[in-house]
């Protein structure tokens, strides 16, 4: 699973991801094989009371593949990192759960996604959420900065899964939790890299 990739190949994958997600940032509708936006959130049983408090444009931009909060609620005051935060839905749900005493950082490789997340954030009154543009493979945070690291539909896109997991572990406090929703292989992928990235789309 951990592929050894030449730096050029890694760049190719990353630029492929950036290109695809520049489109998704405008709206994921019709670009995935599973329901996105509000329909996806309802099917995954996100807490309707929390969804009600968020602007509809953030609900629309959801394209996750699971509900990380189904693994247990976050605690008030928690510091949370959302790797591959996309339009920022999970980050904002997390912000609601941790309250004003907590904080949330969402990061994403795609500049368009970060812009979309910031637009979504501006429609809320959260003062403790930031979205930043960088890769989950190099986390610019001190050791032990977070209580929870979550990630929704991102790891399978990443060539350096092991590296990203090590980074996630490093920035977690001892006893901190990792909550992931992702895709795992049930068959064989024989396709080339661009097709692999494409396999996320119809």
């Amino acid at each position: 699973m951990e592929l050894l990739l030449a730096p050029e190949d890694k760049k190719k994958i990353e630029s492929g991801i950036r290109e695809k997600y520049a489109k998704v940032a405008a709206g994921p509708e019709g670009l995935f094989k599973y329901p996105t936006g509000r329909a996806g959130l309802e099917a995954l049983s996100y807490d309707p009371e929390i969804l009600k408090t968020l602007p509809s444009s953030v609900l629309d931009s959801f394209c996750g593949v699971g509900n990380p909060f189904s693994l247990g609620p976050l605690n008030p005051g928690d510091a949370v990192l959302d790797i591959g935060s996309g339009g920022g839905l999970d980050s904002l749900v997390a912000a609601r759960m941790v309250g004003p005493g907590g904080k949330v950082v969402g990061l994403d490789l795609s500049p368009e996604m970060v812009t979309r997340a910031n637009e979504n954030l501006r429609q809320t009154d959260f003062a403790n959420v930031v979205f930043q543009e960088f890769s989950g493979e190099d986390l610019l945070f001190e050791d032990g900065s977070f209580d929870v690291v979550l990630s929704n539909g991102v790891f399978n896109l990443i060539p350096g899964k092991g590296r990203m997991l090590q980074e996630a572990c490093r920035v977690l406090k001892p006893g901190g939790r990792l909550l992931i929703a992702d895709q795992i292989l049930t068959g064989t992928l024989t396709k080339s890299t661009p097709e692999r990235i494409d396999s996320w789309f119809r």
């Binding site: 699971g66 539909g153 092991g162 901190g176 939790r177 992702d182 049930t186 396999s199």
Partner: peptide, 29 residues
């Protein structure tokens, strides 16, 4: 990577392709 108690915690039903399936994972440092 240094995590303990790593486990799969069920399918989500959201599959991005014919050969992958949505799955939950959790672990603790």
């Amino acid at each position: 990577a240094g995590f303990g108690g790593a486990e799969m915690a069920g399918d989500t039903g959201f599959n991005s392709s014919a050969v992958t399936k949505g799955t939950m994972f959790r672990a603790k440092k």
